[in-house]
Simulated assay, not measured.
Amino acid sequence: DAIDFSDNEIRKLDGFPLLRRLKTLLMNNNRICRIGENLEQALPSLTELILTNNNIAELGELDPLSTIKTLTYLSVLRNPVTNKKHYRLYVIHKVPQVRVLDFQKVKLKERQEAEKMFKGKRGAQLAKDIARRTKTFNPGAGLPTDKKKAGPSPGDVEAIKTAIANATTLAEVERLKGLLQAGQIPGRERKSGPSEDAEEEMEEEAAPNGS
């Protein structure tokens, strides 16, 4: 099952009743800046979590997701936290069950890099330092430049947002997953659709006039 809570004013991902069948949770376009603890108790089957375009600013705020062992698809695009140094490797280390992060498949090389970076006592201390430093980091420093250097292009982001916004049914979500696994940007495959539909409509309108 899927639930769409996108385009609201939600500030914290928390307070869910027991939803055993819920697999996909769409939370894009909110104001989420915190994630509650023990979400796996209320959402024991959650496999896909879309947090695109929220206000998560600290790497440490993503730590509670580590307890959701069923989580395999995660999007945190267009959150300030994605501009943090070692963001992607940190998430791969903290939430190793995720296989697709920000619509990009987690590669074996990335897992190896994350394991090497956070291995042993030094690695554990580095992880703590990274999470702690984000609390004193100035969220406004260098964000526009960083966004231009990494991640999808503005057009790709809009395509992803469109696909997420339309994924209100389980069938749509499954279609979206198929596109992601194929390495395609959701929404791209639809570009030819409107023009074809328009041609069909024109033909249908022309038929009555000719008779």
Rank of each mutant, 00 (worst) to 15 (best):
D1N: 12
N8C: 06
E9V: 09
R11H: 05
L18P: 03
R21Y: 08
R21S: 05
L22S: 05
L22I: 00
K23R: 15
T24W: 10
N29A: 01
N30V: 04
R31V: 01
I35Q: 05
G36N: 07
G36S: 01
G36Y: 07
G36P: 02
N38Q: 13
Q41H: 11
A42W: 07
L43V: 05
P44R: 05
P44C: 04
L46E: 07
T47P: 06
T47L: 03
L49S: 05
L49R: 06
L49I: 03
L51Y: 06
T52I: 00
T52N: 01
N53P: 06
I56N: 09
A57W: 11
A57T: 15
A57C: 14
L62Q: 08
L62A: 00
D63R: 14
S66Y: 01
S66Q: 11
I68Y: 07
I68V: 15
L74E: 04
L77F: 07
L77N: 01
N79I: 02
T82P: 00
N83K: 12
N83D: 08
Y87H: 09
L89E: 09
Y90V: 00
Y90A: 07
V91P: 00
V91S: 00
I92C: 08
I92P: 05
P96H: 04
P96W: 07
P96I: 02
V98H: 06
V98G: 03
V100F: 07
L101T: 03
L101Y: 02
D102H: 06
D102S: 00
D102V: 03
F103G: 02
Q104A: 08
K109C: 00
R111C: 09
K119D: 14
G120Y: 08
K121Q: 13
R122K: 04
A124H: 14
A124Q: 15
D129C: 07
D129H: 01
I130R: 07
I130T: 03
R132F: 13
R133H: 13
T134G: 15
A141M: 13
A141E: 14
G142T: 02
L143D: 14
T145G: 08
D146N: 12
K149G: 06
G151F: 01
P152Y: 09
P154W: 09
D156R: 10
V157K: 08
V157Q: 12
K161F: 10
A163L: 10
I164C: 11
A165W: 00
A167V: 08
E172P: 01
V173Y: 06
V173T: 10
R175F: 05
L176D: 06
K177W: 09
Q181N: 10
I185C: 04
G187V: 00
R188G: 09
K191M: 10
K191T: 13
P194G: 04
E196Y: 11
D197V: 10
A198F: 12
E199Q: 14
E203C: 06
E204Y: 11
N209H: 14
